[in-house]
Each structure stands twice: as structure tokens, then as C-alpha cells.
Design a binder for these strands. Structure first.
Lengths: 252, 252
DNA sequence: CGGGCCGTTGACACAAATCAATGTCCGTGG
DNA sequence: CCACGGACATTGATTTGTGTCAACGGCCCG
């Protein structure tokens, strides 16, 4: 039985608890989930499309992308996942992968057996509910990406992407300069935004005029409100700033 | 207590059972869910963005779209839902709507109280699981839309959209001509595909060359395989043709 | 009969893609 | 320690798919 105090899963539980109410006993059960650690090299697919999984993945460290592609092999990233995320929690309920998962920087991944997750969900309805809820937040992010790629120009797309990642990294975007690591290349940024690497490069230069730069895989935002304006960003959909009384528990 | 034999929810249960294993008792419980019928006129929002819901919606008849928009008020449709779908089943677990729901044709909607759905999910883990699974299929459709809008040209986007809807309407796309009602305007089609109404019109004319037409809100596909080729369509992600042994039940 | 909604068509503008070359950094092996 | 190759970023010239603007037509319905 793993020791909960030193569990890698603390950030995951913390994230669940920002949206759902879980008892300490339930939190404890999640923290002591069995796991297998895996180091994944940059640009390596650790889940392939079509694969039938018997475990879900958890990101301890690194940046992970969900990759799809069109018939010409041009890739489209349909989700980004940072430390503390479970990129394919949905595989618990839908074990055939429809996209690949790739490490975009050197990453530490935990493989958690479906059997354990399912057992937990069956025994604790509140945990099942919290899992379901977290999957739905990912889904809302996805809907925003459709809007982003479908109805915004290049500058707004990149600005929106940077705002979203700033919030998810909790780079406290209030006043002053916001800065954080975003370990991806301009090429991968293009694959997120449905653009060309060349055009991403030009557009990033445009964004410098409003005090936002991306160099050496590091984002620096000098004027947060200017960037949110350009990116038409409203963080509501991320569901990450709920007040305690807004957190939900259905069962019991 | 509603009568299960004449329940409007039969198509919904049938859809759940295509992917999940439910006992007849469980199916019965879903069929007898309490409901309030609502007629909704074309172009009417029956759920507004930001609204806090105490019920989920079920489409008995008609076509429903999930609408988002950018800062200039240009709309992007992020999901389509046909008869038998629950467009916002996720609201059970996430009651604040982040998008609007609009009837795209005259529609009959059932409002089903969250309380009833939650009670069912709590009492029957297999139902909770089936609900979660169905939400994840919607999510995979969304991921495909990101690819569609991000990495395909106008012709492929519309072809893909038509293929998807053909499959979802079960317009048995095997051999021969496929035809079905798709009660939306070219303008709304543009809002799905991230295009301009004018360009949709021109692109549809292109598609006529490969035997696909859309006139009077009716799709007619003479050469299914040609359309799937142009639209790079692979129906796998819809999870609607699972063999019985592929259907899943985790609990019990 | 008239007014909307929707579809259709043409001329033109423009954002982004494409093609191509050069630059910079960095790790690696001779 | 330097030469080399590879990954990534940068820049310019040009093309192209799609957007924009504008006008017209058909059809339904009041």
C-alpha cells in the first residue's frame, strides 16, 4: 500500500477538490492508488491511437499533448495536459484510445490501473462523480478550442492559448508580470492553433507589441488585461476559481 | 409514475445500450424518469449561457445546437444534437451552462430534473457509468471538430460534417444513395464549420461534383465512399457500431 | 401583394499558407 | 577544442483559400 503522505497524486486530489467535495477518507483512497512510474522522452508517444488501455495516465511532471491528424498527416493537438492532470481519465469508461498521447517535454507519467480506478468509483459514488466532473471540464476546454480555431484570427488564437495555459499553471494572473514555462516549440503551438509554424512565428512577434513574449519555451506577459482582450479570454470555463460553496457533491 | 411502454426516452435508452450494458430493471428506471415536455420554436434559445440549471434536456424531435461566440458576436456551433440525444447531460454534474442551447428546427424537448437523474446515478452505478460514457462520446466528437476546423479545408470540413450526421441519423451508409433531413440553413452550417455562409454555398456546389447535394434542408449522398474520402471520415470515434461483446459494464 | 429569410453569384481584398533561404543554439563526436 | 548536424527560429517573396461586400432571385407566408 503506497504511503499517502508522499503520494505523487496530491496535485490531482487538490484539483478534484477545487471543484468537488470529497471527504478526507475519499481523498486518502485516491492518494494511495497503485501506480507504475514511467519516464517518457520528448516527442515520444506513450499512448497510441486505437490502443486498448488497461490503465489511465497521470502527469507528475512535464507537458503532454493529445494528438490527432488529418489525411495528409498534418497534426492537430486537441488537448494539452500539465502536471497534476490525468489526460485520459476518460479511458476508465472508454478504454479504446481515439487519439495519441505524446510527451512534449521530458515527462514523468504514472500509470494507474483501470481496475483500481473503477473499484474506487464503484465503492465511492462521490469519487465517480468527481471523475466525471473533471472529464467534463476537459470537454468544456475542448469546446473553447473549437471556438478558438473556428472563429478567431491568428493573434487571438495564440493569445487565448497563452491565457488558458497561464491560468492552468496558476501563474496568478492578477497584476504585474506573469511568467511561466511552456515547454513546447512554435511548431507545436501551430498544431494547437490550427496554424502554420511560420505564421505562429510572425504572430508572436505581433504579440510582443502588447508586451507578451514567448522565447526559449518561456512565456512572459507584461500586460495581462491587454492579452485577455486580444484573446477574448474569459476564464470561467476552466472552473478553477470556484468558491467553496460552489463546489459540488451530489451523493450522500 | 410515467408509463415505460410509451416513454419518449426509448431512443435514449437504445443509444445507451449500444455502448453500455444495462439490465432491464435499469433501463426501466430510465424510461420512467419524470419529465416536462416543452415545445421550442426555431432559432429559440432554451438554455442560455451562464444559466444555472436544475434539469437536463432531452431531444424528442428536432435539431439542437450548442452555440458559443467570439467577441465580435460571430457564432460558433460546438455541437449538434438530434432526436434521442441529451445535449446537456453533463449539466447533471456541472450545472452552470457555459454555452447556449438553441433549437435549429421546431423541436420537442423534455426537461428532466437533475434530482431524478442524480438519484438514479447514485442508486445504480451502472447508470452513472453509462451517463459518463455517453458524455465522453460527445467529447470525442468535439475533438474531431477541432481537427476538422483546425486542419481541413472547406470542402473536407463540410464533407466530414455531412458524413458524421449521416451516421448519427443512422442513414445506413453502406451501398446506394444515402439521404436524410438535416434541418439547418447554410448559414448554420457555416457556424459549424468555422466558415462564411457565402463560402459554404460555393463549397456545397463543389461537393455536387462528387454526387453530394444539400437542398431544402435535405442531404443526398450518391457516392458514400467518395464523400468519406473527401471528408477524411472514419466513423470509429462515434462509438455507435460496437459489437455486443464490446459494450461495457464496469460495476457488478 | 409585399417583406423576410435564404440561397446564389460576382468582383475584390486580405489573412494565412507556401516556398525557400538563412540564422542561432546546442549537443556530440572526432 | 572545433567541426558538424539537427532542431528550432526568423525572414522575405509569392500564392491561394477564404472572407468581405454587394446585388439579385426564389420562395414562403402573412
Amino acid at each position: 500500500m503506497p504511503n499517502s503522505a508522499q503520494s505523487n497524486l496530491h496535485p490531482f486530489v487538490a484539483r478534484l477538490c477545487r471543484r468537488s467535495k470529497l471527504t478526507t477518507a475519499e481523498q486518502e483512497r485516491i492518494l494511495t492508488l497503485p501506480e507504475r512510474v514511467k519516464q517518457v522522452a520528448t516527442n515520444h508517444d506513450f499512448v497510441e491511437s486505437g490502443e486498448i488501455l488497461d490503465h489511465a495516465c497521470y502527469v507528475v511532471e512535464g507537458l503532454v499533448g493529445r494528438f490527432d491528424q488529418n489525411a495528409r498527416g498534418e497534426r492537430q493537438i486537441t488537448a494539452l495536459h500539465i502536471a497534476g492532470d490525468m489526460p485520459d481519465l476518460h479511458s476508465v469508461v472508454q478504454p479504446t484510445a481515439t487519439s495519441a498521447l505524446q510527451a512534449m517535454s521530458t515527462s514523468t507519467i504514472l500509470q494507474i490501473p483501470h481496475a483500481a480506478l473503477r473499484g474506487l468509483a464503484a465503492a465511492h459514488p462521490a469519487i465517480a462523480e468527481a471523475f466525471w466532473r473533471d472529464c467534463m471540464v476537459d470537454s468544456m476546454v475542448l469546446a473553447q478550442w473549437v471556438v478558438n480555431v473556428g472563429r478567431r484570427d491568428a493573434q487571438a488564437r495564440l493569445a487565448h492559448l497563452l491565457c488558458e495555459m497561464a491560468c492552468r499553471y496558476k501563474a496568478t494572473p492578477v497584476e504585474g508580470v506573469v511568467a511561466f514555462e511552456l515547454p513546447m516549440s512554435q511548431w507545436q503551438m501551430a498544431e494547437c492553433a490550427g496554424l502554420t509554424p511560420v505564421h505562429v512565428n510572425r504572430t508572436l512577434k505581433q504579440l510582443q507589441k502588447i508586451g507578451t513574449s514567448f522565447r526559449n519555451r518561456r512565456v512572459r506577459i507584461e500586460d495581462w488585461s491587454a492579452l485577455t482582450r486580444v484573446g477574448e479570454f474569459d476564464r470561467g470555463y476552466l472552473q478553477d476559481d470556484l468558491r467553496p460553496e460552489e463546489r459540488i457533491r451530489i451523493v450522500n
